[in-house]
């Protein structure tokens, strides 16, 4: 735990209307490496993940308190540029959701939002992102085809490429493989393992095997609390908390 932290959250509380869904989460993330968030359904994993790129802003009934220090700056400060923030912190959802556009347009989407990027550079960065997401070879000959024509696993890697194209530092993924068949899921996992060497990846997963396979660090959530966070190996082999042990050994939910 001596590595540099890119994101530190302190005492995060989140309210859906009157209901407090997160009860003071303290958790930080290294500059590179994969952190898995695990825990039973309804424990607040998605809620926490979505607070990191301020996606809850879309819902006026949600209130977030606490500190989110991203490279030392508070994400929730009034003068935060949300556009910049979300280009730096990308997000991938459970359901593969490419826009009904061509593959190229999907991946270039974030780049084209910024008029300053030249066409040549867009082409380059689309290719770079597709390669990083390990999908380049599958699609390089049909970039102009509709992304909805791809398989689920391919679509999900297109989405990952779409997030990577804007060169974020942090990639948030909410159960990115749970809507995929095992083989597609593994292909996405493999891409993530590669990406974990250069990015800070935070992934919510219900798949314990997946957490074991890909995560360096694992955090266990329950009922809106962070119960325990440690190296993945320790969480699964030597959990310190009773709840964690019950959960990872399957005696729970």
């Amino acid at each position: 735990m001596t590595k540099n932290k890119i994101l530190t959250t302190k005492n995060v509380r989140l309210y859906y209307g009157q209901k407090e869904a997160l009860h003071g989460i303290n958790l930080s993330f290294p500059e590179v490496g994969i952190t898995a968030l695990i825990g039973p359904s309804g424990s607040g994993k998605s809620t926490y993940l979505r607070s990191i790129n301020r996606l809850h802003d879309l819902d006026p009934n949600v209130k977030v308190t606490g500190e989110f220090l991203y490279k030392g700056k508070n994400i929730y400060a009034d003068n935060t540029d949300l556009v910049q923030l979300r280009t730096n912190i990308g997000m991938v959802f459970q359901q593969p959701s490419p826009f009904p556009f061509s593959i190229f347009e999907n991946v270039a989407f974030g780049l084209k939002l910024n008029n300053k990027i030249k066409k040549d550079e867009i082409d380059e960065r689309v290719e770079e992102a597709l390669k990083q997401a390990a999908i380049w070879d599958d699609v390089k000959d049909r970039l102009d085809q509709n992304a909805l024509g791809l398989s689920g696993g391919q679509q999900q890697r297109i989405i990952i490429a779409r997030s990577l194209a804007t060169r974020p530092d942090i990639l948030l993924l909410d159960e990115p493989t749970s809507a995929l068949d095992p083989i597609s899921g593994r292909s996405v996992e493999d891409s993530l393992i590669e990406l974990g060497k250069n990015y800070s990846i935070i992934i919510v997963t219900h798949n314990m095997q997946q957490a074991k396979r890909i995560a360096d660090t694992t955090a266990f959530f329950m009922d809106g609390n962070l119960i325990e966070v440690d190296d993945t190996k320790n969480i699964f082999l030597y959990p310190k908390e009773r709840e964690t042990e019950d959960f990872v050994t399957g005696r729970f939910g």
């Binding site: 979300r86 959701s97 826009f99 974030g110």
Partner: peptide, 15 residues
């Protein structure tokens, strides 16, 4: 239009 399209667009930095 699926809500996830909107959330995806926001998450990539669209205004």
């Amino acid at each position: 239009v699926p809500k996830i399209y909107r959330e995806s667009a926001y998450s990539i930095g669209a205004t």
